[in-house]
Every structure is written in structure tokens, then in C-alpha cells.
Computed example of a mutant assay.
Amino acid sequence: MDPRSEVLLRQAELFQGQVLLAGLPADDLLGKLPAARGWSWHAGEQAGLEQRFAGRSEFGTTAPASPFASAVLFLPKSRELTDYLLDSLAARLPGALLYLVGEKRAGIERAAKQLQRFGKPRKLDSARHCQLWQVQVDNAPAVPQLESLAERISLPLSDGPLDVITLPGVFSHGRLDRGTALLLEHLDKLPSGHLLDFGCGAGILGSVLKRRYPQSRLTLLDVDAFALAASRMTLAANGLEAEVLASDGIHGAPGGLSAIISNPPFHSGVHTNYAASETLLREAARHLLPGGELRIVANSFLRYPPLIEEHLGTCQTLAEAEGFRIYQARKG
């Protein structure tokens, strides 16, 4: 059981009614609170919840339309995203109770101050290195529009500027990270066919791929609903079209790919987690056609080449700069 869920269950009498659990982990919390429902923006958590509690959790960037009498937000990493989520919930709960739960190391005490605009927050519990806060929504905000949080940046690339739309909570919000910048310089001579941008974030790589390889089919995949929304916005801003898929790993990708391109993820919330990246390296060959290529950027200290060569083929280093390397391998 997630420690944040354990803290909620210490106060289980507060959550027996129609409570919405926003950003909940895929543990047994819904089983302990039979009248509760979930709202998730993490495809992996949602898949686990759907498997165990079919129909009781919804995936997306907006709060479920079905009514709820109170809500609990499991604190996300981004302060801006926390604001959006709190406003989304508080707008539906005038005069009702809104809760915030999170780990101390994730900044729950700081985040609790974000409740002050709705009323007077109070701490209900502190245990398992987590805290639970409550506020009565005396000042309900208007329902926030996701598009109003979008930040537009223009990237000056060799083949012309690219408009990028980013959202709070999405990797590298409002800027171009160094790893992606390096990979953008090494996207030439990819095999034609079906291309996959794995861990697409705001859709920068995917949009550049579609622009440079317009005849190729393109799929963008990410675990995060807000990243998928940002990718759709970025594609639209540049007049591009592609398939956008939600999945927590390469298992959700289509087969018959000619190339997989990625700046693979290594965070899960506030935690460092290389599982999705390492699984990509192990399973890429199953999704690639013979001769298909894997091309990724990674921190140079990560020992990815032996893993790539074990499961795919000879690994070449195409470039190295500022602590990153571009790796390339083809399926034999």
C-alpha cells in the first residue's frame, strides 16, 4: 500500500462517501473505499486501476463529469500543475471539503499553502513521512481551462522554427532540454516507414520527425495525459498530424516499426526510475522490423550500450556532448 494511501486510511471515516481520488496510486485504496472513484493522468496507474477496479477510475486532463461530494489530490511534482488540479477540484466543490496528501520530501508543507486561496487549511495527520491537509472551499474558483496554462516557445532549427506548446508537469516545461537538443542534431538518415517517438513529452521530437519525414507514419507515445495533450497542441501548432498513444511502456507501442527515437524518461513523480528506459532497450527488437533502428539520447554515465547489444545489435555512439550520448543500433 502506498504510504499516502495509508495516511488516508488512518482517517477512513472521512472518505466513505462520494469522494474523488485525484492522482491516486494503483494500490488497494479503491477497494478500501467502496464509494470512491478515481481520476488519473498516469497511463500505468490507470491501467492497474482498471484491471482491479473496472470502471471506477477515469484517465485524462480534466476532472470526471460525474458528481463527487469531496476530493483528495495526491500531490504531483509540479507546483503549477498542482494549482491547476486544485482549481479543477475546488471549482466543483463550493462549500465542500478538499484534501491534499503527499510526501514530505515532495514538498507537501509548501504545497499546503496553495490551499489558502480556497479557505483556511488545516493539517489532519502526519505519518509514514506524509501529511494530510484539509480545506473547506469557501472561495470556489472558476473551472480552469487547460489551454490557458500552455506556454509557447519557438525553437530555431536548421529547417525553420518549430512552435512548441508545453504544459505544467510535462518534462522540460517551457524550455528545450539539452538531451533533446543534441538528438535533434542527429535525426538524419532514418529508415522510412513507421516512426515512433517514445516518451514524447511535448512532442518536439515527433513534430520534427514528421516535418523531416512527411511520408512516414508517425506515432507519439507517453505515459502522461498532460504530455499527450501538449503533443497534440504542438502538432496542431505546426500543421502536422500523427497518432498519439497513452501507455506506460514500449509494450503499448505498435509493431512493424522502422525506427524508435527517444529521449527516454527516468523519473516517476519525484523518484528516479529507469525501468521504462531499460525495458525499452530490452523489448525494442520486438517492435522493430528487420533492419529497423533504435536511436536514443541518454546520460553518458548510464551503461546502456551493453544492454542494447544484448537485446538488439551492435551499438554505435553517434555523438557526445554536455554529458549526453546519442546511441544507435539496428535490428539484424
Results as ranks from 00 to 15, higher is better:
Ala242Ile: 00
Leu289Thr: 15
His173Gly: 08
Ala298Tyr: 06
Gly201Cys: 06
Gly249Pro: 05
Val223Phe: 12
Ser300Val: 10
Ala276Glu: 12
Ala275Lys: 09
Ala275Tyr: 05
Ala298Gln: 01
Asp177Val: 15
Glu293Trp: 02
Gly292His: 05
Leu257Glu: 06
Tyr274Gly: 10
Thr272Ala: 14
Pro214His: 02
Leu209Trp: 00
Ile250Glu: 08
Val270Asp: 12
Glu241Lys: 14
Pro265Trp: 06
Asn299Asp: 10
His287Gln: 11
Ser277Arg: 07
Pro265Ala: 03
Phe198Cys: 04
Ala284Leu: 12
Ala284Arg: 10
Gly292Phe: 04
Val223Asp: 07
Lys210Ile: 00
Ser268Lys: 14
Phe226Asp: 08
Gly291Leu: 07
Ile260Phe: 03
Glu278Leu: 15
Glu241Ala: 15
Ile261Asp: 01
Leu167Lys: 08
Ala236Cys: 11
Leu176Asp: 03
Gln215Tyr: 03
Leu228Ala: 08
Pro214Ser: 00
Ile260Tyr: 11
Leu190Ala: 04
Gly199Ala: 07
Ser207Ala: 14
Arg212Asn: 12
His186Ile: 09
Pro264Phe: 00
Thr279Lys: 11
His267Pro: 01
Ser192Gly: 11
Lys210His: 14
Ser262Asp: 01
Pro290Cys: 13
Ile296Ser: 06
Thr272Gln: 13
Arg178Phe: 02
Gly239Val: 05
Ser277Leu: 06
Gln215Cys: 06
Pro290Glu: 14
Pro254Val: 06
Gly174Asp: 04
Leu228Met: 09
Leu221Thr: 00
Thr166Gln: 07
Arg303Pro: 07
Pro191Val: 01
Gly269Arg: 15
Leu209Met: 02
Gly179Phe: 14
Val223Ser: 11
Gly203Asn: 01
Glu278Ile: 15
Leu289Glu: 15
Leu196His: 11
Glu293Asp: 03
His173Glu: 13
Phe266Arg: 05
Thr272Cys: 08
Ala202Asn: 15
Pro265Cys: 05
Ala202Val: 10
Leu294Glu: 00
Met233Tyr: 08
Asp222Leu: 07
Val170Pro: 05
Ser262Val: 00
Gly249Met: 09
Ala246Lys: 10
Ile261Thr: 08
Gly269Leu: 09
Gly239Trp: 05
Gly179Gln: 11
Leu257Gly: 07
Phe198Thr: 01
Gly193Phe: 02
Gly206Glu: 01
Tyr274Leu: 15
Ile250Gln: 08
Phe198Gln: 05
Leu176Phe: 01
His186Thr: 10
Glu293Cys: 13
Ser258Val: 02
Asp197Asn: 02
Ala230His: 04
Pro168Val: 10
Val208Asp: 03
Ser277His: 08
Leu209Cys: 00
Gly169Cys: 10
Asn299Phe: 08
Gly269Trp: 15
Ser258Lys: 04
Ser300Gln: 15
Ser172Gln: 13
